[in-house]
Amino acid sequence: MLELFNSPLGPIVLTATGAVLLLVMALIAILTSGRTDPMQKFFEQAKLDKTGVVADITQLRRKGGREFKSLEKYARFLEPENAKELSDAQQKMIRAGYLSKTAVRDFAALQFILAVTGMVGSVLLVFVIAPDSFESPILKGITLVAPMVVGYFGPRRWLEQRIEARKAEIISGFPDALDMMLICVEAGQSLDQSIRRVSKEINFAYPALSEELTAVGEQVKAGRERSEVLRDMAKRCDVTDITSFVTVMIQAATYGTSITDALRVFAAEMRDKRIMRAEEKANILPTKMTLGTMMFTVPPLLIILIGPSVVGIMSDLNGGIPMPGN
């Protein structure tokens, strides 16, 4: 046995043994953790639904999400046991556009698979494929650890970028959606009908905003209160403009003011705000171009202006060798 660990395959055997032990310990922890009482699970789900985070959005517009049934047995290992942490994780996945009930579990499984794959690949690369290329202990350690870290934290970074991209798309398309909604309301349609119509019209240009408006229209059509549905949309989008719109609509319905007037004023404000964002980007652009201008304009200019003088000085220092062309 000692000869096996001292052989070139020793690190691989040691790593495989450690992985097997960790897997056995995880399975033992899952099997001995006990089953949750069905009534306790019911009360936890009811409490989770009251928070509005896991709303009926997942039931009304789940886009045929493919659920991995084989991961159900590892749900306690892949999903947070704390209700608040699970609620926050589900809300984060919903903001990224993943509406399946098992999105948190699938994402955690993806992180685990990528991390293990990176670890196995790095071990094979360092000890089997190219062992002579990693003689330095520092390089060997970085090569072994980096793929595992990237495999685990890479999906998190990608999820955050997807959330930000979805928010930017909603912010960009919201003024146009408000203008179309105002036209529909002034034409005689109700607010609910205008929301459903606008969601169909902007589906091609702004699919994320179309999904949110479609969810609002379907939930109101199913019998939920409009104020609750709008609040849920504001929580899912996490955009200041959407939150302000929801507040205006709820106040207009509460105090009995004209929804048309409220929409007209708010739509004009959103148009002005979009113009201000465009002007802000235009004002920042010269500052960003300064570095590029200095890098790609100043060096060639210096070469053109100072180059002949440098060549002349060097020719004088070398004994007065005449310059080409003289």
Score class of each variant (00 low, 15 high):
Glu201Tyr: 03
Ile202Cys: 11
Phe204Tyr: 02
Phe204Asn: 08
Ala205Trp: 01
Tyr206Asn: 00
Tyr206Ile: 00
Pro207Met: 02
Pro207Lys: 01
Ala208Glu: 13
Ala208Lys: 04
Leu209Gln: 00
Ser210Asn: 04
Ser210Glu: 08
Ser210Gln: 00
Ser210Asp: 06
Ser210Leu: 06
Glu211Ala: 07
Glu211Val: 01
Glu212Ser: 02
Leu213Gln: 03
Leu213Phe: 10
Thr214His: 09
Ala215Lys: 00
Ala215Met: 13
Val216Gly: 06
Val216His: 00
Gly217Phe: 04
Gly217Glu: 03
Glu218Ser: 12
Glu218Leu: 15
Gln219Asn: 05
Val220Lys: 10
Val220Ala: 09
Lys221Asn: 07
Gly223Lys: 07
Gly223Tyr: 04
Glu225Ser: 14
Glu228Phe: 03
Glu228Cys: 02
Val229Ile: 11
Arg231Trp: 04
Arg231Tyr: 05
Met233Trp: 12
Ala234His: 03
Lys235Asp: 10
Asp238Val: 03
Val239His: 02
Val239Ile: 12
Val239Gly: 08
Thr240Arg: 08
Thr240Asn: 05
Asp241Ile: 08
Asp241Glu: 14
Asp241His: 07
Thr243Val: 06
Thr247Ala: 05
Val248Lys: 01
Met249Trp: 11
Ile250His: 07
Ile250Pro: 05
Ala252Gln: 06
Ala252Leu: 05
Ala253Met: 06
Ala253Asn: 11
Thr254Pro: 00
Gly256His: 09
Ser258Ala: 07
Ser258Tyr: 05
Thr260Ser: 14
Asp261Met: 08
Ala262Asp: 03
Leu263Pro: 06
Leu263Ser: 09
Arg264Met: 11
Arg264Val: 10
Val265Thr: 12
Phe266Trp: 08
Ile275Ala: 10
Met276Trp: 02
Glu279Asn: 08
Glu279Pro: 00
Glu280Ala: 11
Lys281Thr: 02
Ala282Trp: 05
Asn283Glu: 12
Asn283Cys: 05
Asn283Val: 06
Asn283Leu: 10
Leu285Ser: 14
Pro286Met: 10
Lys288Asp: 05
Met289Lys: 05
Met289Gln: 08
Met289Val: 14
Thr290Ile: 15
Thr290Leu: 15
Thr290Trp: 13
Gly292Glu: 15
Gly292Trp: 15
Thr293Tyr: 15
Thr293Val: 13
Met294Gly: 04
Met294Trp: 04
Met294Pro: 08
Met294Thr: 14
Met295Ala: 15
Phe296Asp: 03
Thr297His: 01
Thr297Ser: 08
Pro299Gly: 12
Pro299Leu: 04
Leu301Arg: 03
Leu302Met: 15
Ile304Met: 11
Ile304Pro: 02
Leu305Ser: 00
Leu305Thr: 06
Gly307Leu: 09
